[in-house]
């Protein structure tokens, strides 16, 4: 249709702009999300990362440019056809009161069902597998209301898995979770990628993103700052350009992934080389960063 997609990317953005009302939140983005990898989109609040994800999942229209799945504009697919290829788990899913875990996970089968095909053997198998892969089989009969935040998130990911799409998009899947449950969810994402899925997530936490992502996409004010492997993207220069944060990058002794260590005290902040502050000697290496937040407009949905 338009630019042919590279072999290793099924989901792409081509000069994609997205916005709400007057504000353009994503500005002319070009992006290829590699197949069979765990891609994490990072950036400061209101940088447009959730907006980008929602546009890729056709929850928002493109203002200009296009989001492409397999070379075809996402809005040109029929709803169920698209939902068999790609799904996004929204940040907040209102769960009906009293619904059980297995019933919620079974809802993921909707695009494979019809008026006279309400429960096939494939539906049964897919739900059982999704429950098992996310480790919630034992909770199947429990009401979702009774679960902890971490269990609940795994159940929702299980629902998205039951949909059996090759591409899985997760909008801030670790928000509101404590550190153990964040790690649990990200380990699950890595495992899903090992099982052959393509996972794209928006994360707040740069540290966890650097540790778990195969491919990092850094956004600032709706524009692409950098993309690539964590080792290429997580550098002091790019952290400063993306977040306006001055930091050192060490090697994580546990995994070898880049480890972000913000400079001590106010030295880490833009224009924050406060005389006499601890660690200001190191901070002197960093260039002054313009306070770019004034340029940010709109809100992240």
């Amino acid at each position: 249709m338009t630019t042919p997609a590279p072999q290793d990317a099924r989901l792409c953005a081509r000069d994609l702009s997205v916005g709400y009302k007057e504000a353009t939140v994503v500005k002319g983005l070009d992006l290829d999300l590699p197949v069979g990898r765990f891609t994490v989109i990072v950036g400061p609040n209101a940088c447009g990362k959730s907006t980008l994800l929602r546009a890729l999942a056709r929850l928002l229209p493109a203002r200009s440019g296009a989001a492409l799945l397999d070379g075809r504009e996402v809005h040109r697919y029929r709803s169920k056809d698209f939902a068999r290829r790609l799904t996004l788990l929204p940040q907040a899913v209102p769960v009906p009161e009293g619904i059980t875990v297995a019933d919620l996970v079974a809802r993921g089968r909707f695009p494979h069902q019809g008026m006279l095909r309400q429960w096939s053997p494939q539906d049964e198998a897919a739900v059982r597998e999704a429950l098992a892969v996310t480790g919630v089989s034992a909770l199947a009969d429990r009401p979702v209301d009774d679960l902890s935040g971490g269990q609940r998130q795994r159940v929702l990911i299980s629902m998205a898995l039951a949909q059996d799409t090759e591409l899985l998009l997760l909008d801030e899947p670790t928000t509101y979770l404590d550190i153990t449950h964040q790690i649990e969810v990200l380990e699950l994402c890595s495992e899903l990628v090992q099982r052959g899925r393509t996972v794209v997530a928006v994360l707040h936490d740069l540290q966890l993103a650097a540790r778990y992502a195969d491919h990092l996409v850094a956004l600032r004010a709706g524009e692409l700052v950098a993309q690539g492997g964590p080792a290429e993207v997580v550098t002091p220069e790019l952290i400063e350009a993306t977040f306006g944060l001055r930091a050192r990058v060490l090697e994580d002794p546990e995994t070898g992934a880049p480890l972000v260590v913000p400079l001590a005290g106010r030295a880490a902040l833009p224009g924050g080389a406060v005389p006499g502050a601890a660690g200001s000697g190191t901070a002197a290496q960093g260039a002054a960063v313009p306070p770019g937040d004034a340029a940010l407009v709109g809100s992240e949905a």
Binding site: D81, P94, P111
Partner: peptide, 19 residues
């Protein structure tokens, strides 16, 4: 069936293939 999907909100319903 679509009403069942809409119980989970517009976004989740849309992602499940409901126009």
């Amino acid at each position: 069936g679509r009403m069942g999907a809409l119980q989970l909100g517009d976004d989740a319903a849309s992602q499940a293939g409901v126009p």
